[in-house]
Simulated assay, not measured.
Amino acid sequence: MGFVNVFADWLFVLVWIVGLAGTFVPVLPATLIILAGALLHELLVGFSELSRLSWTWLVLITVAVFAVDNLAALIGARRYGAGRAGMWGAFIGGILGLFILPPLGVFVMPLVGAFAAESLSGKSADAALRAAWGTFVGMLGGMAGKFLLHLMMGILVLRAIF
């Protein structure tokens, strides 16, 4: 095993750890960081360690991550009684949160958006607060799901390269 292979292997491990940590920082594209780490690894070793099946699994897990990311807050909001307005409010709040107090805004603004939208649609403050809480619970559940999927991505690559 040459220096380049050892370097590439440990570089992937480092990038994967950054990606895992990035799961909890909404402005970092953690999934893409992990995929880029796998691609960089393969570029350095001449595409000799990850099979087509491994790449297929990485792509499928990536799709699952994006599904979890986009659906978790909506499911949480719906579970706690949010209507269409609250879900749209959470979505718009999440986008605004990227620009307002990042990265904290990404956590807070979906709650504010859901609460505001539910209140404006005529729901009581208690019902609007419950919907906002559901959005937050959904976001946390989504982060947990993404973290597990990011672990799977890394383990898949590690099994192939070590």
Rank of each mutant, 00 (worst) to 15 (best):
L148V: 12
A85I: 06
H41E: 10
G19L: 05
L43G: 01
F91L: 12
L129E: 05
W16M: 06
A64C: 08
S51P: 10
F3W: 11
F99A: 10
L35I: 07
I92M: 14
L98A: 05
D126T: 04
F7M: 13
L50G: 10
G81F: 04
E118F: 00
L43M: 15
F147S: 07
I100M: 08
L58I: 07
L120M: 09
I34P: 01
G113M: 08
G122M: 00
I155K: 02
S121G: 07
A85P: 03
I100L: 00
S54M: 05
A85W: 01
F115E: 00
L71D: 15
L50H: 14
N5F: 15
A90G: 14
G142E: 15
G89P: 02
I161L: 10
A90W: 12
G22C: 05
G93T: 10
I92Y: 13
A132M: 04
R159Y: 03
G81E: 00
G19I: 01
G138T: 11
F3T: 12
L71G: 06
G145Q: 06
E118C: 00
G46K: 09
N70A: 15
D69E: 08
G22R: 05
A64Y: 07
T31K: 03
R79T: 13
A131M: 01
F91T: 10
F12K: 11
L20P: 02
A131T: 00
A36C: 01
L40W: 14
G2I: 04
A117Y: 02
F147W: 10
